[in-house]
């Protein structure tokens, strides 16, 4: 479903020093995977995830989502691609503070133009799966970190994207919440068949995924 060929990415710091953040990445992610980009801090996990998520550009190589080549898209095209095909979970939840939990979960569906009824049903469905159905009317800042992250997952999964990209989703959570979150995400993967790709070096994530892609210094060292 996702295919990367010879992807390279540099960061330029000042004029002289550059960072070769992604070195010749070749990688395929199939539909329904529950996989992890793993490796020490600074090895390029986030950079790779952002490239796959069309959040950031690459310097060379190609990335295909199904048949579509995404590295050549314009900024607005990439934005729409993210809206229509992808879900994101960030380390620091990044919910919309002025919207209730229910509105946050339904936000992407609303942007994509789903009917209000459809949105409502779907929001309740995923909220139940993620055990936040009794918090639907609350504002995000009244929830615990674990609950907020589950709202973020619900938002990502509600519109049934092709893939969910989760960058260090457990980094701000304690062990209990981390385990609970991973269990729920695994259930989503199994019950809804949603493809999920993590970037993390957290042991709970490592224990829970089915495939681990090990990175070091910008390259894939083990798959």
């Amino acid at each position: 479903m996702i295919q990367l060929t010879d992807v390279q990415k540099y960061f330029y710091r000042g004029e002289s020093r550059e960072v070769h953040a992604l070195k010749n990445i070749n990688l395929t992610i199939e539909k329904g995977e529950f996989s992890l980009l793993n490796g020490p801090s600074g090895c390029g996990k986030t950079t790779l995830l952002n490239a796959i998520g069309a959040l950031d550009s690459v310097d060379s190589g190609k990335i295909y989502l199904d048949e579509k080549e995404i590295t050549t898209l314009s900024e607005d095209e990439r934005t729409l691609l993210r809206l229509n095909e992808m879900g994101f979970v960030f380390q620091s939840y990044n919910l919309v503070p002025v919207l209730s939990v229910e509105e946050n979960i339904g936000f992407i569906m609303k942007l994509r133009g789903f009917d209000d009824d459809v949105i409502k049903n779907r929001v309740h469905e995923v909220a139940e799966l993620l055990e936040i159905e009794n918090k639907l009317q609350s504002l995000p800042n009244t929830l615990s970190g674990g609950q907020q992250q589950r709202v973020a997952v619900a938002r990502a999964v509600a519109s049934k994207p092709k893939i969910i990209l989760a960058d260090e989703p457990t980094a701000n959570l304690d062990s209990k919440n981390s385990i609970a979150l991973m269990n729920m995400m695994r259930r989503l993967n199994e019950e809804e068949g949603v493809t999920i790709l993590f970037a993390s070096h957290d042991e709970y994530v490592i224990e829970s995924v089915r495939r681990i892609i090990k990175l070091n210094d910008g390259g894939i060292v083990e798959d």
């Binding site: 959040l55 900024e75 607005d76 934005t79 729409l80 993210r82 809206l83 229509n84 879900g87 994101f88 960030f90 620091s92 990044n94 919910l95 919309v96 503070p97 936000f107 992407i108 942007l111 994509r112 938002r155």
Partner: peptide
């Protein structure tokens, strides 16, 4: 951050 999130999840400029 809020706008960054909105952009990331699919709001155009």
């Amino acid at each position: 951050r809020e706008f960054g999130t909105l952009r990331s999840i699919g709001l155009t400029r």
